[in-house]
Each structure stands twice: as C-alpha cells, then as structure tokens.
Amino acid sequence: MATPLPLVRRHRLVLLAVAAQVLFLLGVAAAGYATTAWGRTLTLRTTPVDPRDLLYGDYVRLNYTISQLPSRLWRETGRAAQANEPVYVVLQPADGAYEATGVYAQEPAVEPRQVVLRGWVTNSWRHGLRLRYGLERYYVPEGLGRRLEKRPTLLVQVSIAPWGQARITRVTGY
C-alpha cells in the first residue's frame, strides 16, 4: 500500500530528477552547438517567400527548391512513396547551392561530395513528391526581416551533423 518515501531519500531523488532535467535541457542546447561545430554546412535555395512573414511574423515559412521533386528521383522500385513516410534525400552541389539527386526509403551510401538530409513525404502523386524537412520555419532574428524584405528568394545555410541532425545556421538574400 501507499507508504510515502522517507524525507531524506525523497530529497535526494528530487535533486537527482531536477538535475537530470537541467542536464537534459543543456544537452539539447549542446546538440545545437555541436551540429554547427561538427556538421557539414551547405546552402539550399528557396522559392520566393511571403515578405509579410519577414516583417510581421515571428518566423518565415520557407519553401525550398528541394521541397517538391519529380517522381523520377524516387529510388525505391516496385512501390510508390507513401504520405508521411520518412525518407533520406541525397543532395549534391549544383551551381552555388545543393540540389536533390535521389530520394530513398533507407539511408543510402553516398559519395564524399554528397550529403544526406532526412525528411518526410507529405504528398506523392504520379509525377512528383512533396517533402517536408522540418526546416520550413525560420525564426527570424530581430532586424533581419527588414534587410531581407526586398529579396524574397533566400539562401539558407544548413548544418548537417554526421549523426543526421540538421539545423538552419544562417539565412541570406540571394
């Protein structure tokens, strides 16, 4: 039956639990720094964004050139991509920015100049795929919105860590 924990033991456990939570939050922050420090940085091109987002919103909705891909890049034979399916997108440099060369259901082995970005299929039809990378929202730091307002096409620098974690590190005008 219910017997409350002895007070001393409880204090020790509470301290342990709170310390673990603090450490965990610090770990999340550290993962952010580590992704930039050890990750490979590459540039992605966006299609024009809504300038009102830049000026008035907390974040800007980004639509990348790799957000919509032709279905010939789907590399699984015998079946179509399913909505919500997690996928691995292989990117390689093509004049100034990275573009997709293939979409895989399992993590593929790639050449040194290529990188793998994880994402999800949001929609798939006969001729194309719509993908979501989790990079579609950029929380705009103060002042940047005004500078980028006249340049609706943005270049987004993304760091991809060796363990697959990706994060936006910088957004610049095209």
Binding site: G32, Y33, T35, G134, R167
Partner: peptide, 24 residues
C-alpha cells in the same frame, strides 16, 4: 521542463527526427 525542451530546440533550429526529446 516540456516547454523548455520545445523552446530550446526551436531556439537552435533543431529538427526532431524522433521522439527522444519529448520522451524525456
């Protein structure tokens, strides 16, 4: 703590690929 997990990953623009963060 939950808000901290969400806000910290948002602050560093981290993407959640699995649910580990919130599982904590």
């Amino acid at each position: 703590f939950g808000a901290g997990i969400v806000l910290t990953s948002q602050m560093y623009q981290l993407i959640g690929y699995d649910v580990t963060g919130l599982l904590a």
